[in-house]
Amino acid sequence: MGSTNYRGTLILVADDCPSDEAEIPPTRTKSPTVAELQYALISARPYEMTSDDVLFEVFATRNEIAADKRTEAREAFFAKDQVCLRSSPLGKRYGWGIHHDADGRVALVAVGSDDYRALAADPEVKQLKAMRSRRA
């Protein structure tokens, strides 16, 4: 099973992120977007879930996978390579850095905040950029 988890890493906002400050993704009435679901999961439970947990939970929610089928579905989901949170709309569009602690659990960090600046300046924290939305 592949993993998307990082440890001791900050995913910085993308170079082409249009937001100068962190924004809560707008709510859609029909079905929640990936950004909405990721934001809701991570913001409600900072440093409780890993990247793998977040990505699978979003997949399971969007595909209406029943609770009793999730173990099998998770194995099938990670049997294929998955994109990591560097491709999340939170870092690409909405101005959120994603910090992975030493155990791989994630929390959101608002761009421009004291926490964001401190983590970005910490030599012990690996820095990765969220993927750009457009080619350079």
Rank of each mutant, 00 (worst) to 15 (best):
V58W: 05
K92D: 02
K129N: 14
A44Y: 07
S88M: 12
D53L: 02
T71S: 10
D68P: 07
A44G: 14
D20T: 13
A35Q: 04
V13R: 06
D122A: 12
I42H: 10
Q82V: 07
F78H: 07
L128C: 05
Y116M: 11
D15C: 07
H99V: 06
R86N: 07
D52R: 10
S133K: 06
M49L: 15
P26K: 11
F77W: 12
A66Y: 10
R132F: 04
P46N: 13
D103R: 09
K92L: 07
V58L: 07
Y47F: 15
L41Q: 00
P89Y: 08
A73W: 02
A121Y: 12
Q38C: 11
A130R: 08
R86Q: 13
P89Q: 13
Q127R: 14
C84A: 14
S113A: 12
L41T: 01
K69S: 08
A44R: 12
R45N: 15
L90G: 00
V106E: 01
F77Y: 15
A110I: 06
I11C: 03
G112I: 12
A110H: 10
I11N: 00
A79K: 03
E36G: 03
P89I: 06
S43E: 13
A76N: 11
T29W: 05
H99R: 03
F78L: 04
S87N: 13
A102W: 04
V109H: 03
S88W: 06
S88Y: 09
R105E: 00
G104L: 10
V54A: 13
I98D: 08
E36T: 09
